[in-house]
Nucleic acid binder design. Structure first.
Ligand SMILES: [Mn+2]
Ligand SMILES: [Mn+2]
Ligand SMILES: [Zn+2]
Ligand SMILES: [Zn+2]
Lengths: 148, 148
DNA sequence: GTTATAAATTATAACTATTTTAATTTAAGA
DNA sequence: TCTTAAATTAAAATAGTTATAATTTATAAC
């Protein structure tokens, strides 16, 4: 089924006139197969075995291409670097404030909050961002030190 | 009442052993009086008349001090620089995706979402982040172009 | 299968927000 | 007033990301 997802994604790209290069294929595949939320550098490092000459710019460029095609979402945090999420279905994230682990979770939707925001501020709401911060089971059990 | 707030904030700092310097006072005052969500550079520029020799490092250092004292919250976004919010009462933000304007709004709380996240992921939730994106009345009326 | 060409990749330099460093100045208590 | 730890300054360093220009390549037309 990840196979299927990859094919599907490749087709989406082809249909919007994006050329399929080996690098592009590999980055996309990594995003889908790893099922993680890697940074651009994670991807770069993961693929340097297969593509010893690949440039970081290629990773960034392609992530931008995938974003524009709606295949990938960028998750931005304060200090560190962006993380990238293959856009399967809409979901939210819980983030461990100790180790940084990111876990998906589903929740009906916060349409009501958007509606209230519209009503109170006069804005027309388009979308929202929400994430929960906490401590993951691992960190709780092994008593890891919290990030300052 | 902003006067009162400034005094209160200064006292909070004094009580935690933080020295009150003219720069510190000015940065804090600007945050409270402007009632905006300025970047470090906004603050730096706003105060360069009064403090021609102030270093950007001073702005950043003090914002960190204020954060640690719980007086200020840092709002981080994807591409651009952090914004800083004097921490009066808890509130959420609506952000214009066209001009970047940030407007406060109050909403009861998303405890339920935190609870569900805990239940589903095994994390212990500490807090959350939520913001609504949309188009502000000004941008809607004057038909400004959306940021890509 | 060749060829043409626009698009993609690469290597490197540039950029920007933020932090670090080390020297100098200063707030505040004795 | 004196003392000293803490704060400020100026400058350099850092890190993530983007821009540039030369080279390579995916794709479609032939
Ligand atoms: Mn996810
Ligand atoms: Mn606010
Ligand atoms: Zn953890
Ligand atoms: Zn606007």
């Amino acid at each position: 089924m990840t196979e299927e997802r990859i094919k599907e994604a490749i087709n989406t790209l082809k249909e919007s006139g994006v050329r399929i290069t080996p690098q592009r294929h590999a980055i996309l595949e990594f995003l889908i197969v790893s099922m993680a939320h890697p940074t651009a550098d994670d991807i770069y490092k993961a693929l340097e075995g297969k593509f010893p000459n690949m440039s970081v710019a290629t990773v960034y460029n392609n992530l931008r291409v995938f974003k524009k095609a709606g295949l990938v979402k960028e998750l931005t945090y304060g200090d560190s670097s962006s993380r990238f999420d293959f856009a399967s279905s809409d979901h939210y994230h819980v983030i461990c404030s100790s180790c940084g682990k990111i876990v998906d979770f589903h929740y009906p939707g916060l349409d009501e909050v958007e509606a209230l925001a519209e009503h109170v501020t006069g804005f027309s709401a388009q979308n929202h961002r929400m994430e929960v911060y906490g401590v993951c089971p691992d960190c709780r059990e092994h008593g890891k030190i919290l990030k300052s």
